[in-house]
């Protein structure tokens, strides 16, 4: 059990590192949102599961945190993506933009 827990903890740490690195190195806002959200969500899952395997009596509490993160993190990133689109428009290299006619045209200021 301890081995499983420690492996999961290291995996979680690695994905948090990947999230930070992704936010640092991706080229535009939407790619940063994608990298940050995916990597930190899986990192949080792995790390919390590792803690749960180490102390099995905490498993329900850990499960509640996992469910909350699984629901709230993608919603937050969707809200941020929509807000970024409204604030600075699409990046210059898009090939198709269906969102423009829905949200209305904003001039490219970003």
């Amino acid at each position: 059990m301890e081995i499983v827990s420690q492996v999961l903890l290291v995996i979680g740490g690695l994905f948090f590192l990947l999230g930070g690195l992704g936010v640092l190195r991706m080229p535009d806002v939407f790619n940063r949102i994608q990298a940050g959200t995916k990597a930190t969500t899986l990192g949080a899952f792995a790390l919390l599961l590792g803690i749960g395997f180490m102390y099995p009596t905490w498993f329900l509490k850990v499960g509640i945190i996992i469910v909350f993160i699984a629901i709230s993190n993608p919603i937050g990133s969707s809200v941020l993506a929509k807000a970024s689109y409204k604030a600075q428009g699409a990046p210059s290299n898009v090939v198709q933009d269906d969102l423009k006619e829905f949200l209305g045209g904003t001039e490219d200021v970003g």
């Binding site: 690195l21 991706m26 080229p27 990298a35 290299n93 898009v94 090939v95 933009d97 423009k100």
Partner: peptide, 13 residues
């Protein structure tokens, strides 16, 4: 994509 960053080919909405 993080380890070999290049501009994505054709992003879109």
């Amino acid at each position: 994509r993080v380890l070999s960053p290049k501009i994505p080919l054709n992003p879109g909405f």
